[in-house]
Design a protein around this nucleic acid. Structure first.
Length: 187
DNA sequence: GCGACGATTGGCT
DNA sequence: GCCAATCGTCGCC
């Protein structure tokens, strides 16, 4: 089963339940996607807004392309590009339920607390070892890939986190009962 | 050429 | 709850 990547708004809830797996030195590290957010080029909060630039070029490639960016000079976040080439859309992966390579994750994050390994966009890239080298690569053609789809009980749709523009759009999706969604929850 | 800022996190008051 | 850390990109002087 593969996710629906036709548009960011369809892909965001569709990606919930899929495993995201990164292979580093032959070791698989990953988890089940439990929180996502949709962004597109007409959305002022999106990096794709205002047209294609050096920084957001990956968002204008074909669906399944990986967009990795540095935020606040400290953390990396990862998107999966959606839509047709040139559409400037993507889904931000905000949180995972850790399932594979727990020891590697704990080493990468410097903590043993399961709940604190991948419950945020910057945390999960650190846990999985995702860096700028993956930017512009493809989900089916690199060390990062999607795995099996797991059943999702219930999905909550609400507003996105940490943005100042278009903050009212309900384009954030998460597994309602999951204890692994990011904290900073503005309900 | 230079300055302001961000799809975050963790540590301190 | 509040604020500093830290740097690539972009917009403007």
């Amino acid at each position: 089963m593969s996710p629906n990547l036709k548009s960011a708004l369809e892909a965001a809830p569709s990606l919930l339940g899929f495993e995201l797996i990164h292979t580093v030195d032959g070791v698989d590290i990953g988890g089940i996607i439990v929180e996502t957010e949709a962004y597109d080029m007409h959305d002022p909060a999106s990096h794709a807004y205002g047209g294609e630039r050096i920084r957001n070029a990956s968002l204008y490639k074909e669906a399944g392309t990986i967009y990795v960016y540095l935020i606040y000079g400290i953390h990396y976040c990862v998107n999966i590009v959606t839509g047709n080439k040139g559409h400037g859309q993507g889904v931000l992966i905000r949180a995972l339920e850790p399932t594979i390579g727990l020891e590697a994750m704990k080493a990468n994050r410097g903590t043993k607390a399961l709940k604190n390994l991948t419950n945020g966009p910057g945390k999960l890239t650190q846990a999985l070892g995702i860096g700028p080298g993956l930017n512009g690569r493809h989900i089916g053609n690199s060390s990062l890939r999607l795995g099996d789809k797991h059943p999702v009980a219930d999905i909550t749709q609400t507003t996105r986190i940490g943005i100042t523009k278009a903050a009212d759009l309900p384009w954030r999706f998460y597994v309602t009962s999951s204890p692994f969604v990011s904290s900073r929850v503005s309900v």
